[in-house]
Design a protein around this nucleic acid. Structure first.
Lengths: 251, 251
DNA sequence: AGTCTAGATTGACCTGTGTCATTCGAGGCG
DNA sequence: CGCCTCGAATGACACAGGTCAATCTAGACT
């Protein structure tokens, strides 16, 4: 039933939280069986979204965070001046909307990149939950800290890295994250378009294309359309963590 | 006693929290008088740091957040590959180290940009505090959400804006933040070097210099060394929110 | 199968911003 | 007071990556 080498995006979703396989994200919320039961009744599991559908919309009233079960999601903000900026990609096991917790409105929109399944975790009455479930608060603080740190690493990426370094970093990040969920870390399908990647990394689409073909020529990766095989993780790592600053070294 | 037009950095610090003038940051933590008393005993007020001194250091055990009372602080991270990246500047009334809450270690270092005074808010036993003070958790979640959103705006800035737009945005941000604290929003001293600005905005120092003189020639700002006078806020706003993307429009 | 469209690739060219090198100015100190 | 150092400003030049334009590819639909 499992698909071949490439990470499958639409799997059969389990009906109980403790079998979901994403326990490291949600289950710390529920430490004892009673909590687990409450969690299961509170959480709205396995909502499906088609490619292009919005999971939530910037400026809508904040209601829930979402955990990706299958598929993939991108978040983006639209700035005052109408610029669209992809702020993140979310893969199975990752939680979306942490940036909006305890604010009144969603601070970004989230859109399914392919047919996806998400768990909705209602957090509008967050305070009550935390009183009931002791570990919950700590867990969410941790998730939010990570989100800040992720965003700061992004800042470094954009500030200090060349196009090649950005893309190597990006591919390795996907690899690591797929790997964490027991999917292949070296062979996967990119759920997003080159355009999304370019936007996210602050590059032109053309540059993304050029760099990817260049990395391919260097035998570091191989592409067949969206399908991606990392053939030399070390090589990529070397590029990603280039010892020096963007402009004074290359090669 | 008040200094002239320029925001004073070393003021006489009050001894009680409710007179501190930063109430919007700290006092939501303490909603009733008893809480206030607890807060005053818990918080370590008015610690002084000289220019260049570290308030806390990346990878040190996380202990406290800090609120800037007077002066200014920069935070920076050092990446695996030895790059230094200034992640933020913190002015009076702003809280530092939110990105480290509920993590084991500080995720960045904080350094005083001039002689500064900070309030230390011990949060290592954060969970107990939140049980005792109901509003505390909500308040901190809010602060952290803001921090994430700030970081995301930074991403947009770095991704989509030219050097001119970045600097206009930067100056306006300082202006707004000084203004919030009842300091002049149009005349202030930059507490950081051009180098810090350049690093933070992902530019070369030379570019910062050139752009600042350019903005000066356009009569939008005026500089005397670190002293800065915004002479045309609207003009700056126009540049900061340039209607189109960096490269297809200029002027 | 044939058509359509959105996404991806590739080449030619251009420009914003980085690098290098030099000069200038101001604050700290013997 | 002059020396020293660090930060800032400015000019000459180089190049990474953007723009424009054309072509190719692969699903989606009739």
């Amino acid at each position: 039933m499992e698909e071949t080498i490439f990470a499958k995006t639409q799997t059969t979703f389990r009906t109980s939280c403790d079998q979901c396989g994403l326990s490291s994200v949600c289950l710390p919320i529920a430490v004892d069986p009673e909590d687990l039961y409450r969690l299961e009744t509170a959480v709205n599991r396995g909502q499906k979204f088609n490619r292009g559908e919005l999971v939530f919309k910037q400026r809508d009233r904040f209601k829930s965070c979402f955990v990706v079960q299958g598929g993939a999601v991108k978040t983006f903000i639209v700035t005052e001046d109408g610029e669209k900026q992809v702020t993140g990609f979310y893969l199975p096991g990752e939680m979306v909307a942490l940036d909006s917790i305890n604010t009144d409105y969603y601070s970004c929109s989230a859109e399914a990149l392919e047919r996806s399944s998400l768990c909705e975790i209602p957090l509008d009455r967050f305070a009550e939950h935390t009183l009931r479930i002791p570990g919950l608060q700590h867990h969410f603080f941790q998730l939010m800290s990570q989100e800040i740190q992720k965003s700061q690493r992004m800042t470094v990426l954009l500030n200090r890295k060349t196009a090649d370094e950005r893309l190597a970093t990006f591919l390795l990040s996907l690899s690591k994250r797929f790997g964490r969920r027991h999917m292949s870390a070296t062979q996967f399908r990119l759920p997003m378009t080159r355009n999304d990647i370019a936007n996210h990394l602050g590059l032109a689409v053309e540059t993304v294309s050029r760099v990817l073909t260049r990395l391919q020529k260097q035998k570091l990766v191989q592409f067949q359309g969206r399908y991606c095989t990392l053939t030399d993780v070390n090589g990529l790592t070397n590029i990603a963590h280039a010892v020096n600053s963007p402009y004074e070294c290359r090669g």
